[in-house]
C-alpha cells in the first residue's frame, strides 16, 4: 500500500507512547473510535457524536452559527496580539494606533483583520438569529437555547461597542458619547449606571480603561461561557431542527 510521507509520519507517531498517552484510542476508522474522537475530547465533547444527515445540508444552517464562532476565534487571536502593543491610556492609545499602522510589522494587517472580523461577526450573528427564527429553530425543546442565543447577540454587540472606543479617535469618542448618553435616559438608574460605566462624568481615561477591561476580559469570558452552553444545549436538545420534507414541498 502506497502511503504518503504525512501518513507514514502519522502512523509512526501513533505508535509512540506520548501519542497514546494523549489520545488513548486508535485511528478514527470505526464508529467506536469515531465516537471517542468526539466525546473523549474536552473541546469536542459538547458536540453530539451523531448528527442527522439532513442537518448537514447547506440550506439547513448556511454554517452561520459556525461562522459566528469562527469569527470569535479570529477576533480572540488578533485581539490578544493587538494587546501587546496597546496602552489603555490617553493619548497613548491613539499613538499606539499610529504605531500599529506605521511602525509595527504587520500591525496594520492585524488591526484591519480585527476590525473587519468584528463587523462581520455582528452581521453573522444577526443573520444566524433571523435564519434560526424563520426555520423555527426556537421551538421546543430549543426554547432555552434561543434565549442563550439572544444573550450571545447582546454580548456580541457590547463587545463590538466597547472595542469601538479603544482607538481613541474622533469616530470612537463621539460614538461612545452618544451611546453612553442614551444610558442616562434610563429612568432612575440611568445616571448611576453611566457614572459606573465611565468611572466619572466625562469620557476620559477612566472610561477608556473600563471599556478596555470589559472588552478584553469580562465580555469575552461571558461570550466563552455562553458559547459553551449554546453548543452543549444543541446536543442536549436533540440536535439541530430539521424541517419535515412535506413542508418544503408546500
Amino acid at each position: 500500500m502506497a502511503t504518503t510521507w504525512t501518513q507514514q509520519t502519522l502512523n509512526h507517531l501513533r505508535r509512540t507512547r506520548a501519542w497514546k498517552s494523549i489520545f488513548r484510542r486508535g485511528p478514527a476508522r470505526t464508529n467506536r473510535t469515531r465516537s471517542l474522537a468526539i466525546f473523549g475530547n474536552i473541546f469536542l465533547h459538547v458536540l453530539p457524536v451523531k448528527v442527522r444527515e439532513k442537518s448537514l445540508r447547506l440550506r439547513a444552517t448556511y454554517y452561520l452559527g459556525s461562522f459566528s464562532f469562527f469569527l470569535f476565534v479570529v477576533l480572540t487571536v488578533t485581539g490578544v496580539l493587538l494587546m501587546f502593543y496597546y496602552h489603555p491610556a490617553v493619548p497613548e492609545a491613539y499613538r499606539d494606533m499610529k504605531d500599529l499602522r506605521f511602525v509595527v510589522a504587520n500591525g496594520v494587517f492585524l488591526r484591519n483583520l480585527h476590525r473587519l472580523a468584528a463587523q462581520v461577526m455582528v452581521a453573522a450573528v444577526f443573520w444566524h438569529m433571523f435564519h434560526v427564527f424563520f426555520r423555527g429553530g426556537y421551538k421546543p425543546p430549543h426554547e432555552f437555547n434561543w434565549v442563550v442565543g439572544v444573550g450571545l447577540l447582546l454580548v456580541t454587540l457590547f463587545l463590538s461597542y466597547t472595542g469601538y472606543l479603544l482607538p481613541w479617535d474622533q469616530l470612537a469618542f463621539w460614538a461612545i458619547t452618544v451611546g453612553t448618553n442614551i444610558i442616562s435616559y434610563v429612568p432612575i438608574l440611568g445616571h448611576p449606571i453611566r457614572f459606573l460605566l465611565l468611572g466619572g462624568n466625562i469620557i476620559g481615561e477612566n472610561a477608556l480603561l473600563r471599556f478596555y477591561v470589559l472588552h478584553c476580559v469580562i465580555l469575552p469570558l461571558a461570550a466563552v461561557i455562553l458559547i459553551a452552553v449554546h453548543f452543549w444545549r444543541i446536543q442536549k436538545d436533540g440536535g439541530l431542527t430539521v424541517r419535515e420534507d412535506h413542508e418544503r414541498k408546500g
Binding site: F195, L196, G199, G200, N206
Partner: peptide, 8 residues
C-alpha cells in the same frame, strides 16, 4: 467601582 476623586 465608583471613583471618589475625579480628575475632570
Amino acid at each position: 467601582l465608583s471613583p471618589n476623586v475625579l480628575f475632570e
